[in-house]
């Protein structure tokens, strides 16, 4: 077992009587993309900003590469790259100036030109910050987090506000960055992003860790229901529904059959993991051939639902606690 690069244990952070982060512990291994996933306001940003030494914890310890970032926040500045959610630059600084400026702060910075190329910013090097698109600003922000050749990078909500294409490009970029050996701590409220990028992750809700593991492991670990969706042609849909209803009433692996919302002819059959085995022979026996069969893919959203009892509603408002000021 290698020494963890990031270690957070029993972290607690309160604002007045509001508990923003409550007993959060996790460890990140070298070279991992580690996710901190949760809805807005869950305490993710507070947790990583405390880890980065930008906020003072009310309890627990935070270590980056063996340094206590609560006691010595400046000790890791050279090797920890941070991309903040709400930080901008001077309107009139150009991309090239910004990256060279930040490179100058570090003892062994990356080559600014190579980094600009990696982030597809070379053509925009002379553009002023105020004239950049959202995606370009975001890429510059990532570039600035990486320009010091960090061993660990914290990236907070890096695809918020990007269009789908830009998001996918950013994800590819993170893969490339990881391939260079940087350990990445990825904060996100996007389930798909966490599923796509993270080697391991914690799910945070209401300041507490509610689930922890690999995305696959978390999904596979879900107890219970599977759903199969079947679509039948109009002339057989009645007969098929009859077969399925009978199945639901008698077969131990089939719990219920529902009409899919707004899709005529589609039925969703829910039951145990063996529900598919029950449905197929019954339909075969009655010679009812569905036009379409699909199993409903389970995602981290189902994990969230299972551990919190709430559906993962995407809220677009800003996190309430993360924006509160903090003296540092």
């Amino acid at each position: 077992m290698t020494e963890p690069v990031v270690e957070v244990s029993h972290l607690r952070k309160t604002y007045g009587d509001k508990v923003a982060v409550d007993d959060v512990s996790f460890a990140v291994s070298p070279g991992e993309i580690f996710g901190i996933l949760g809805p807005n306001g869950a305490g993710k940003t507070t947790a990583v900003e405390t880890l980065a030494g930008m906020r003072r914890a009310d309890g627990g310890t935070t270590h980056v590469l063996g340094h206590d970032t609560q006691k010595h926040p400046t000790a890791v500045r050279d090797v920890l790259g941070v991309q903040l959610q709400e930080a901008t630059l001077h309107d009139k600084i150009t991309v090239g100036e910004a990256i060279r400026l930040f490179a100058g702060f570090y003892p062994a910075p990356a080559d600014p030109d190579e980094l600009l190329a990696l982030l597809d910013l070379t053509d925009h090097a002379d553009k002023q910050f105020r004239n950049l698109s959202g995606g370009q600003k975001q890429r510059l922000s990532i570039a600035l987090a990486l320009v010091g050749n960090p061993q660990v990078a914290i990236l907070d909500e890096l695809t918020t506000g990007l269009d789908p294409q830009a998001r996918r490009n950013t994800w590819d970029l993170i893969d490339r960055v990881r391939d260079t050996g940087v350990t990445i701590l990825l904060v996100t409220h996007f389930m798909d992003e966490a599923e796509r990028l993270c080697d391991r992750l914690v799910v945070i809700d209401g300041g507490r860790i509610v689930a922890e593991g690999t995305p696959r492991g978390l999904i596979d670990g879900l107890e219970g229901d599977r759903t199969v969706v079947l679509r039948f042609a109009d002339e057989v849909v009645g007969a098929a529904r009859e077969v399925l209803d009978r199945l639901a009433a008698t077969h131990p692996d089939v719990a219920r059959v529902e009409e899919m919302d707004g899709v005529p002819g589609e039925s969703a059959v829910t039951g145990t993991p063996r529900v598919l085995f029950a449905v197929v022979p019954a339909l075969a026996e009655a010679d009812l051939v569905p036009d379409d069969v699909r199993t409903v893919t389970r995602t981290l959203e189902d994990v969230f639902l299972a551990v919190t009892g709430r559906t993962y509603a995407e809220q677009d408002e800003e996190p309430a606690l993360a924006t509160e000021g903090d003296r540092s």
Binding site: L84, A87, T88, H90, Y106
Partner: peptide
């Protein structure tokens, strides 16, 4: 303006 826009905050995460 730098404080309002988070420029100072951004700076505080660097060695500068």
């Amino acid at each position: 303006t730098y404080r309002e826009k988070g420029v100072l905050r951004r700076m505080s995460t660097t060695p500068m």
